[in-house]
């Protein structure tokens, strides 16, 4: 398998394992899985079918997916109840799978193994610079819930630590009351500071473009107004409305905006801080 195929295969395999899908025998480059009903609902868009199944109290057999990652993989071993399906980047199945993972993985609790463990709130945040184009940054932060120290770019570090889904038996967790509003507020302040420090030439360009476009519109409609006033006075009002609409469209499209969107949060108990680089401590805010 080439790299793309391999990484898709690996992602799908992990996803199906974590959602409890039953993996069936299949060639090594194919995934054949039987889906639990809740997963099936997320991976195939057929709400009316499920409405009917539930209304009629039906118990249909679970859906079996036979996912190929290479067009040349064999279909011969596909179970009769499934239809072989080629999975490539951007295909419908992958889009549904990502959407399902995003919904299921919005929150988590995780633990390091053994010893004394301290609580951290870990966030994944998407920052977007938007005008008529868009650029995104995926940032991650960890907030020490005792000291309110904030650590940036923590996900790579945390992925290197073997975190567990269950609390280890011999670990001692440091208990701390958590004020979620305060934690979120601190997160947003930190993000804001980071965002401010970035280069905003894109916004300056967008703002300049906006002004130019508005100026051009102004010239055009002013000349149109003059002309209409003399030749065709009853068309002045429609032109004024059209002008308002065009202005609103330009502002809608071009005005520079920054969007900050926290996407995920985890409560993680760690034996040591997730990095040396504490960015700020705003406990006194």
């Amino acid at each position: 398998m080439v790299e793309d195929e391999h990484s898709l295969f690996d992602y799908c395999e992990r996803y199906f394992r974590h959602v409890g899908a039953l993996q069936k025998p299949a060639p090594s480059d194919v995934l054949c899985v039987e889906l639990p009903r809740d997963v099936d609902k997320e991976l195939t868009d057929r709400p009316f079918y499920w409405m009917w199944v539930e209304a009629m109290n039906e118990t249909p057999a679970n859906t079996v997916l036979y996912l190929k990652f290479n067009p040349d993989s064999t279909d011969a071993e596909a179970p009769p109840e499934s239809k072989p399906e080629l999975v490539v980047p951007g295909c419908y199945r992958m889009l549904r799978l990502y959407a399902s993972a995003k919904a299921r993985g919005a929150f988590a609790a995780a633990y390091e193994t053994g010893g004394v463990l301290f609580p951290y709130a870990v966030f994944v945040v998407k920052v977007s610079f938007v005008s008529d184009r868009r650029m995104d940054f995926l940032e991650s932060y960890a907030i020490d819930l005792q000291t309110f120290q904030v650590y940036g770019d923590v996900i790579p570090e945390l992925l290197n630590r073997a975190l567990l889904d269950e609390r280890p038996q011999h670990a001692r967790l440091i208990a701390t009351p958590i004020d979620m509003d305060k934690v979120f507020s601190l997160l947003l302040r930190c993000v804001r500071l980071d965002v401010e420090a970035r280069d905003h030439q894109w916004a300056i360009d967008a703002r300049r473009r906006l002004e130019l476009e508005l100026g051009r519109l102004d010239d055009y409609y002013t000349s149109l107004h003059e002309q209409t006033r003399v030749i065709d006075p009853q068309h002045i009002l429609p032109h004024a409305a059209e002008r308002e609409l065009r202005i609103a469209e330009i502002v809608w499209r071009t005005e520079p905006k920054i969007e900050v969107r926290p996407l995920q949060m985890a409560l993680v108990y760690l034996g040591a801080p997730p990095g040396p680089n504490a960015t700020s401590a705003l406990a006194d805010m």
Binding site: Y11, F107, A108, A109, L159, M180, F184, E255, V260, A266
Partner: peptide, 30 residues
């Protein structure tokens, strides 16, 4: 520029009883 902070995650967390619950493995997939 205008600055927009989206707080769907905070709302969702409230709906989950203000406590993040879920598996780390799924968190990494997300």
């Amino acid at each position: 520029y205008t600055y927009h902070e989206h707080t769907e995650l905070r709302t969702l967390l409230t709906e989950h009883g203000n406590m993040p619950v879920g598996k780390w493995s799924m968190f990494t997939l997300a």
